[in-house]
Write a protein that binds this DNA or RNA. Structure first.
Lengths: 127, 127, 127, 127
DNA sequence: GTGGTCTAGACCACT
DNA sequence: GTGGTCTAGACCACG
């Protein structure tokens, strides 16, 4: 795994979100074993303490489990994964819609803008 | 003016965005005089230095101008205001669309979700 | 007279330099009467206190004289005017040469750069 | 590092320019770690907040980068450094040439004056 | 009255 | 350890 980091957000949060997305999208499946702190730290060239913090938070959210002596695993609870997905999507949606309204855009404007944005992307992708 | 502050973002940024929105939406018009540092500080119960920081950044973005000894004014360049509006909307849009795609949503899903969200809000508003 | 003001320098200084230049270049001649504080203030849309300050400083430098009840006049001492010109040129020169050396430019570089700059201007002027 | 401060310019600007020059001249190389806020503050006997302000501005110009929790570094983008050098030299040049013309000097005068000034300095330097 | 700068000292998040 | 933010209070130049 390689990642580019944005200095405006804590690294542990960036890694955390990255892993959550991998799980949601299915690149990491329920029950999969996760790289150890040391491995990930070496791979990403990041301080192990930062990775530790990442896992701590993932565990707090119940998306990762530690099995003593065996390592860390993606939770087997698919419901947890689904609810995390909804939560992340909901946050994205809220921030976007609220933000647009604060800028004075109305419902129809917002839908138009999004429609154009995603269809444009589709075009580019198929070129 | 009154404001509620969110602890997760620097106060100066929150005030900054608040003022940018007021200007974009037209509550503050091009050329309008802006509350002085001391006035705003008193009004919001915030340290004047924090307000100073806010204005510093707004000035850097060209949305506010200082006239020596007289105070600060909203820029008269309407084009600047429009481009800031576009920039802010573009950021919101990008973060949303990219984020949703990273979660595995496809174009049609994204449009559906947004449509539902904004129409739901409209219903509530008209109740 | 009209002037554009730069917000990064005190207005009184800008007017002051402007008048010094007019005198040096000969647009205002030794012994000429100078606009009154009120006139200048109205013309430039500037606070009279600021104009007052301008004249105060010009007087301190001996380049302007007050004749009680008659108004203010450009000094008749041509030597004063010449020495002001040398002083201003010297300051410009020093700031430039010292600055360029601090940036690592050597003597021959500096001469080359200036030569190019002024000859380029000459070309433009004759177009 | 030691510095003498000039009361006519904000300290943070003086330090800023000083560091820009060090980087341009190569005393600080691309990628080098920069003294921490606290270190520099102690060294220069200046309040840490003032140093903070200095770095804030340097970062805005893209000549310095912050790596979270690790400290600040000179940008690795040599092109950024070069363009800053050109910008600073251009400003010096403009202010000088424009200023001299405003005083009535013509192209050949300007070149002569600069040539004399720099050659005189060379003589002194070799004494 | 206005903004700009500086100091002193504190707290926090991040690595 | 690092930088980022905030407060409190002071002084200055400018108009």
């Amino acid at each position: 795994m390689t990642m580019e980091f944005d200095n405006n957000q804590p690294i542990y949060l960036q890694i955390m979100n990255h892993m959550k997305r991998q799980i949601i999208v299915g690149k990491l499946k329920p029950g999969d074993k996760i790289d150890s702190v040391r491995e990930l730290a070496a791979e990403l060239q990041i301080n192990p303490n930062t990775i530790q913090r990442t896992f701590q938070e993932l565990e707090r959210e119940g998306i990762v489990e530690t099995r003593r002596g065996l390592g860390r695993y993606v939770t087997s609870e698919e419901s947890t994964i689904m609810s995390i997905k909804k939560e992340m999507a909901g946050e994205l949606l809220d921030r976007f819609v609220i933000g647009m309204r604060e800028l004075g855009f109305e419902s129809k404007d917002i839908i138009t803008i999004v429609s154009e944005a995603v269809s444009e992307k589709d075009k580019k992708g198929s070129e």
